Simulated assay, not measured.
Amino acid sequence: MPTPENGHTGKRIAQQRKLARLTQRELADRIPYSYSWLTQVECGARPASVDFIAAVARALRVDVTVLTGQPYVTQLQEDRLAELIRPIRESLDLYDLGDDPEVTTRPASELTAATEALCAQVRATHLHTAATALPDVITELTALCWRAPTTDLWRALASAYRTAHDVTVKLGYFDLASVALDRLGWAAERASDSRLAAIRQYFRGLVYFREGEYTIGLRLIRSGHAFLDAADASREALTVAGQLHLGGSVLAARAEDASAAAAHISSAREYAGRVGDASRVHWLNFGPVNVALHEMSVAMEMRHYDEALRQAKAIKLPAGIATSRRAHYFIDRARMEMELGYTEASLKSLWTAHRTAPEQTRYHPGARETVRGLVHLSRRTPQMLGVGVHVNVALARFS
């Protein structure tokens, strides 16, 4: 069963609402959800979807993590992941301290290869392995960049900062992830690499996607495009531009701007048609399949669950797709199926996500809320009592 710190998102929403001295009616008037929806979430009768949480966080002017209970510290301690956060934090603080003569570094070529390996490990969802190796890579690259800076070394350091962002986001340390993005911008500027600067804006946009500030997020996406040279038709530049459009599509969907979301998807599809499978270009997973996955996400974020599920069923994930992306697909599919009342199918999708990427799925707030929604459905509907046993087993695994 859930630990007390992770117990009930709806209860935390109620607590923060009361601290803000708002009634349920008053809070409901400030979010794009009904009073009935809010009351059901607060009492635990309905799961708090990620878009609902973002809307409430924005209305209450609190961080999303206050409502979700992230990071899930007890779970992280049990999985021996919490102990890896402090070394990452410390390595991110070395950026402006100059050279440390006590640091012995590996050859530059070896460290550059190590940054590529870290990206691959994150996409394979080997979070413990990546988090363990990351601080030394950052520390050594920082020292080398101060001793004998080159463009390639600054790019490698930027890649390591990107991995720090990816790992800390997946584990729920969003403030630390923002620090990593600041460091990415610092390294990208020294590398004079406009594509890395654009990638940073993409990830900054996703910060505001989580926090419910979609206007700022879309401005960051536009800023990312501005970093790119319009005359640059290289595969790398087109991939980054396409990924920016995918970020814009889900931000526009959350902002309930269907035409803007469709325009972003259309542009991304055009770029994907030109570059093909560019999943390893900056490890952005960009390509035709990822465009299809984002089109599905757009429908889901606009709460068109029937259409989203239809699209999900039509997507054929290639064998070589990143493990992290495969698991994300099944987490999203489980949410759609749960919202439509397909409890057994939703549970099956969650188990598939968990088998595919256990660490990623356990720490994904959407997966956890979907499990709680399934628990409620299994208890409320007599014919689902048999399924309820399996759902409660799932809850124990996710909590």
Rank of each mutant, 00 (worst) to 15 (best):
W37Q: 14
Q40V: 00
A48S: 12
Y33C: 04
A59H: 00
T39W: 10
C43I: 15
A48Y: 07
T23A: 03
Q40K: 15
L60C: 07
A57R: 03
Q24W: 01
L67N: 05
A55M: 02
R30E: 09
S36K: 12
V62N: 04
R30I: 09
Q24N: 07
G44M: 07
D63F: 05
Q24I: 00
P47W: 03
V41C: 09
V41L: 06
R21F: 05
A59L: 10
L27I: 05
I31R: 07
L22G: 02
S49V: 04
L60V: 03
D29H: 13
A45I: 01
P47F: 02
V66Y: 03
T23E: 02
C43H: 10
A54R: 00
A55V: 03
Q24L: 04
A55F: 06
E26W: 02
L22F: 01
V66M: 06
V56Q: 00
R58P: 01
D29S: 15
P47K: 08
A45F: 08
S49W: 09
S34H: 11
S36G: 13
S49C: 07
I53T: 15
E42G: 11
P32E: 06
V56W: 03
S34F: 02
F52H: 12
T39D: 14
E26F: 00
A57Y: 02
V56F: 00
A57E: 00
D63H: 14
W37A: 14
R30K: 14
Y35A: 13
V41A: 07
A48E: 06
A20P: 05
A55Y: 05
L67W: 05
R46E: 12
I53K: 08
A57S: 12
R30V: 08
A48I: 04
Q24S: 10
R58F: 04
D29L: 13
V66C: 06
S34Y: 00
R58A: 14
A54Q: 02
R25N: 12
L38G: 09
F52T: 11
E26Q: 15
I31T: 04
R30D: 05
S49G: 12
Q24E: 09
R46L: 13
P47C: 01
A55N: 02
R58C: 11
R61K: 14
L38H: 12
T39V: 14
C43Q: 15
L27V: 09
R21Y: 08
R30N: 06
V62K: 01
A45L: 12
R21M: 06
A57G: 12
L60M: 05
A55L: 03
Y33W: 11
L27K: 10
A59P: 09
Y33H: 11
L38F: 10
C43D: 15
C43Y: 07
Q40I: 07
R58Y: 10
L22W: 04
Q40G: 08
A55S: 10
R25K: 13
P47E: 12
L67I: 08
E42I: 13
G44F: 05
V41G: 00
V66H: 07
L38K: 09
L60S: 01
I31S: 07
A54H: 03
R30L: 12
A59Y: 08
V62Y: 01
A54F: 03
A48P: 08
A20H: 10
R30M: 11
Y33K: 05
R25D: 15
C43K: 13
V62G: 08
R25I: 12
A55P: 01
S34K: 11
L67E: 07
G44P: 04
L22Q: 10
L67Q: 09
A45N: 12
R46W: 09
Q24D: 07
E42R: 10
T39G: 13
G44D: 04
